[in-house]
Design a protein around this nucleic acid. Sequence first.
RNA 1: AGUCCCAUAGUCUAGCGGCAAUGAUACCGGACUUUGAAUCCGGCGACAGGAGUUCGAGUCUCCUUGGGACUACCA
Length: 577
Amino acid sequence: MAQTKYPELLKEVSDDKEPEEGLNFIRTIIEEHNRTGRFDGKVHTRFPPEPNGWLHIGHACSILMNHKIAMDYGGIFNFRFDDTNPITEEESYVNAMIEDIKWLGVYKEYEDGTNNIFFGSGYFDQFYEYAEQLVEKGLAYVDDSSADEIKEQRGSITEPGKESPYRNRTIEENLDLFKRMKNCEFPNGSKVLRAKIDMSHPNLLMRDPIVYRILHAPHHNTGDKWCIYPMYDWAHGLEDSIEGITQSICTLEFEVHRPLYDWFLDQLTAEDGSPIFHPQQIEFAKVIISHMVSGKRVMIQLVKDGHVNGWDDPRMFTIAGARRRGVTADSLRKFMETIGVSKREKIIDQSILDHCIREDLNKKCPRVMSVLKPLKVILTNYPADKKEEIEVQNHPTIKEMGTRKIIFSKIIYIEQDDFMENPPDDYYRLSLGEEVRLKNAYLIKCEDVIREEKTGEISELHCSYRPKKEDDPKVKGTIHWISAENSIKAEVRLFDRLFVKENPMETEEGKVFTDYLNPQSLETTEALVESFLKDAKLGSRYQFERLGYFYLEPIDSKEDQLVFNRIISLRDSWTKK
RNA sequence: AGUCCCAUAGUCUAGCGGCAAUGAUACCGGACUUUGAAUCCGGCGACAGGAGUUCGAGUCUCCUUGGGACUACCA
């Protein structure tokens, strides 16, 4: 009965299902849009960088988040260059960013041959037409005031602004002047096009904001076609609208721009007189990670002053730096999901990122043995001419990774840190008179310590081994090793955090952020690695057992000198004590 | 100073008027282990403060406090 009588009510009830728990605030808004049908259920996001610098890990999180939201709702993601200022923008940044997004896995080619990379400069004609429309509607005027005068007119956060003397030019005059601006009849700075809004608006951005400025400068995409260029607030909403962006997600500092974003979009109409498409701007707090910097100026200074080796230095978490370090895009994706999204300003502890990197690498990396700081060990009871092949697992739990053979022989190397003459009680590696397990091989016992005559430094160890594994007693320690027969030398780069301070930008009295640079952020050493690695694919990743995850650096590695980056060390609950 | 935004464990986060306040990470224990890893178990630990609305407030309102944004012909 009720069904036939109140079908619409029933429908309302069934539609009114509880919103899913655990949605972040952006997804909650999207759910609401979908529920009310504001965008016909479509979800189309974008990431719009200006090509004037390097993308860093914070950008990566935003890109990945925008992409994931779109994908989860069956939508579309655009990558768009917000290239409206030819003075600061360069093609080289465009190319670097494209490389970054391809690596992140958010680049998409469509069947019709197009892709998801767009340029704000591609819409310059449309922007101009819309601006003419604004003028025609009496909502914009050409202002001859100087930059200083305009600043003066704007007032301040406590005082209202004053109207420009040029504010009441006729529509015809404005149209003519604007056209002549476009035709390059005026020098830089002599005129601007301004929106006519409200000079006493509490939001400074609404006090007749500039829409176009004159800039006689070639653009990396449009060349010499234009000598007027749109301002951010004018261009941005239009770019979003033209592309059909539904949720325009940006960082908190653009919150005050939203009224202007909305105002422009609300004034404009399409040819048929209908309002133009109006996306929803949503602001969130950007991702800042402890012990890192991400400001553009700051990163440039690090590069320029030689604190790092270029903008793709593995210690800098630019996307290129992370990539070159060997970090995977998957771990960044995991990180982005782990930290979530919110409007509260925050510094995320680097340990969360570290965990995501390790988690991903743990399941992807085959294990190999490497000795970073070799200590020679001679097995006194092992025949000099004997060699054994031992078949070992490439991964402790993922059997599909297969096995490989390593060689055991009389002379091996162990890690210097794995031997102590007078160890503390809880040290369970090798010490004089004690036994330790060699990973995948025998138990050895240290019988004698040989020293350098002059320096007194330990130069080698004499050990005995237990040939019959069956009789082995239980020992607490297992250490890695490598046979002289089975090793090659390789350069290994060990990275540590670039800054010792959680937030290097929060400087104490009389200090600058570079004072917090970690002097040990890079250590280069010559290590021994298993010799089969000489044929390994550049860019492959391994876990060096007990040491960490390493990346066969594709750029600096040479045939006779491989270079491995330590992406991240293993979690270590021993040295921390 | 005006307008606006934000506030849950060390860190990040869930919570949408009724929970013993979620999960992750970090940290501390323990189990397991031929990686002091991984894995597994357990523990520590938070609603900034104050009023109000309500039978009932982390959740709604107001005030206070603290943090942030805004005064570019940058984005």
